[in-house]
Nucleic acid binder design. Structure first.
Lengths: 219, 219
DNA sequence: TAAAATAGCGTACATCTGTACACTGAAATT
DNA sequence: AATTTCAGTGTACAGATGTACGCTATTTTA
């Protein structure tokens, strides 16, 4: 990684150039799978065959991009938590943070969305892994902060992430002025889910309590 | 459409062959955008250049496929309504119907998922239009059956469709035995949403009532 | 200092792509 | 019956693609 030596240093530099070239070519009308090895190499200022000194495949480059995207997402979550500690609604701040992410990293988010339902099982697995991390951290938070049943917390986290990602997808095709409304709607939907989860979690507790009591009484 | 005449009849027949050839080549590792005009023509038993007698573009064929997929989806909804009239939970039956759809039409559903976040604005618009129909019909149903506020009903319908589509996406990469659990989890999530929407809808009603009262009282 | 390793280049090739063009035979029109 | 229309064919071409192979120049190792 931090290998010094003029050679290894230069190698990592051009490797980055390849990664950045690929990222730079992504757009709303250009998906990763539509990029050719030659295009990426050219954009990076390399001869086509030099590509192989860094990746054996376009797929290998792609998986690297997905990893980077996941990393960016997790950094984002840390930012969100910092904001929450300064006070404010968890749901509201999470949504706003996510929307900012999409404004600043539209193409990375597009990459995740597309490869999630793409043609490579490896890609799909990689994206889903990143989303799972994302979900599990939210799940932990919910379980701890709201004292929810583990299953209920997971279901809520999963549903919330789904809703937020879908809203993000809509945001990509949205006029900037409609973004505010979209965020507000998303927040309301998340509140529905939170409320519903809370009620169900509660009922389970009540049942457990009731069962305990009846056990005691039947002794 | 129903034009007879030996010629027009034959034309429609080979047009269908093209459509079916395209649909037939879709799979988990083959997306529409990765199909070539030549492949599709070959699969349909046509010379490459004959393709142009029916579609000016692969894009035109693709949009036709999206329309067909939307049609299939709406037929599905009708089936679901029939089942509901025979009794049973709306949510449960809707989810089960959707899961059946995916088992029987995996590749059509994949088409929708992929083109929804694809590289063609026209495709994205077409898919979103189909999903909007789907959502609005559910919205009407909720508004009428549960007497919900229009906005709340829409938010619930939108969230529910998002959750169900996402579950469908998961179902595509799922072992068959895990499908049952996935369906159960999805049903619970939809109940969260329904419950939350109900509570919020209620609160709005209460507020409205309260405002009416206070108006009356202040007279 | 001599030898080995290697990032990057240029050439070359087989394969696939969309599509332009001229042609044919059968159906439709007159 | 004569003419027009048109779905489908076959050939042809220019461009793009992945990648095998051999070469060079510079860094690294011995």
């Amino acid at each position: 990684m931090a290998m010094s030596g003029i050679r290894a240093l230069q190698k990592e530099k051009t490797r980055r150039q390849l990664i950045d070239a690929a990222l730079g070519q992504l757009s709303s009308e250009r998906s990763f799978s539509s990029l050719s090895l030659r295009e990426v190499a050219k954009e990076a200022g390399l001869a086509p065959t030099s590509f192989y000194r860094h990746f054996s495949d376009m797929d290998e480059l792609g998986l690297t991009l997905v990893d980077e995207a996941g990393l960016t997402l997790r950094q984002l979550m840390r930012q969100a938590r910092q904001r929450i500690e300064k006070g404010g609604s968890v749901i509201q701040i999470s949504v706003l943070t996510f929307m900012e992410f999409i404004e600043n990293n539209g193409n990375i988010f597009r990459l995740l969305l597309r490869e999630r339902s793409g043609t490579s099982a490896a890609f799909r697995a990689a994206v889903n892994r990143e989303i799972r991390y994302f979900t599990l951290e939210l799940c932990d938070y919910l379980q701890q902060a709201n004292k929810l049943d583990a299953e209920v917390a997971y279901l809520q986290a999963n549903a919330a992430v789904t809703i937020v990602f879908s809203a993000g997808s809509d945001a990509l095709d949205c006029d900037k002025k409609d973004l505010k409304e979209l965020a507000l709607r998303t927040i309301k939907q998340l509140r529905f889910i939170a409320r519903g989860a809370f009620e169900f979690g509660l009922r389970n507790d009540v049942r457990v309590e009731a069962r305990k009591k009846s056990k005691v009484e039947s002794k």
